[in-house]
């Protein structure tokens, strides 16, 4: 474990907590893409299949349980408890256009042609594009609530910090995982224009409103 990875995990944790607080306090899921949350649930389920078979550390296990539990709770809030506030018209991204190519790529490009490894690779590739329905929804509605912007900033920062973690691990431990790094770079790049908007607008107290 290193400071970059710890900050990355804390940023990821903060993103999930910010999202839950937004939903619980405002009792609304307006502006939140249920499809992205479903993709994140798929990512966590596929990646943490080894939750019961391989023990890394208490921290690792607790975080996995927390991530899986909260993402399914988020889906419950979106599609059941606060269903009336879910904006399905604007959440219209065709996720099959993500899942099929990512699934195929996981079969073709992986570290080992073994079921658990292919599923892990699928979760890494899927995570890099899982935010697209959410960014697409914001581009369609033309704006994002400030709290949603904080959620996205924390979520985008988590993988950017992981990139720093991989640089550190390469020089400190000789650890290198090309698949995770390439997917992490793609994932972080997808947030770049949002990061720009966040820093130029939200940090100055303005709301993010894209030219609709």
């Amino acid at each position: 474990m290193n400071i970059f990875r710890l900050c990355g995990d804390m940023s990821h944790l903060a993103a999930i907590i910010i999202l839950l607080l937004k939903m619980w306090k405002t009792r609304s899921v307006a502006g939140i893409s249920g499809k992205s949350q479903i993709l994140f649930a798929t990512v966590f389920t596929a990646r943490y299949l080894d939750l019961f078979t391989s023990f890394i550390s208490i921290y690792n296990t607790c975080m996995k349980v927390f991530f899986i539990g909260t993402v399914y709770f988020t889906i419950y809030l979106i599609y059941m408890k606060f269903k009336a506030t879910y904006d399905s018209n604007h959440d219209s991204f065709r996720v099959e256009f993500l899942i099929v190519p990512v699934g195929g790529l996981a079969f073709l490009v992986n570290h080992e042609f073994a079921p658990l490894e292919i599923i892990w690779t699928f979760s890494i590739y899927l995570e890099s594009v899982a935010i697209l329905p959410q960014l697409f929804m914001i581009s369609k509605t033309g704006e994002a609530e400030t709290i949603t912007s904080h959620y996205l900033f924390a979520l985008g920062s988590y993988r950017a910090l992981y990139l720093c973690n991989w640089i550190y691990r390469y020089y400190a431990e000789g650890f290198f995982d090309l698949i995770a790094v390439v997917a992490g770079v793609v994932q972080t790049i997808l947030y770049c224009d949002f990061f720009y908007l966040y820093i130029t607008k939200v940090m100055k107290g303005k709301k993010i409103s894209l030219p609709a």
Binding site: H12, I56, N60, F176, D177, L178
Partner: peptide
């Protein structure tokens, strides 16, 4: 590629 046998990252 020398990722550990098991993936130790979240």
């Amino acid at each position: 590629y020398n990722n550990r046998e098991e993936h130790d990252e979240l």
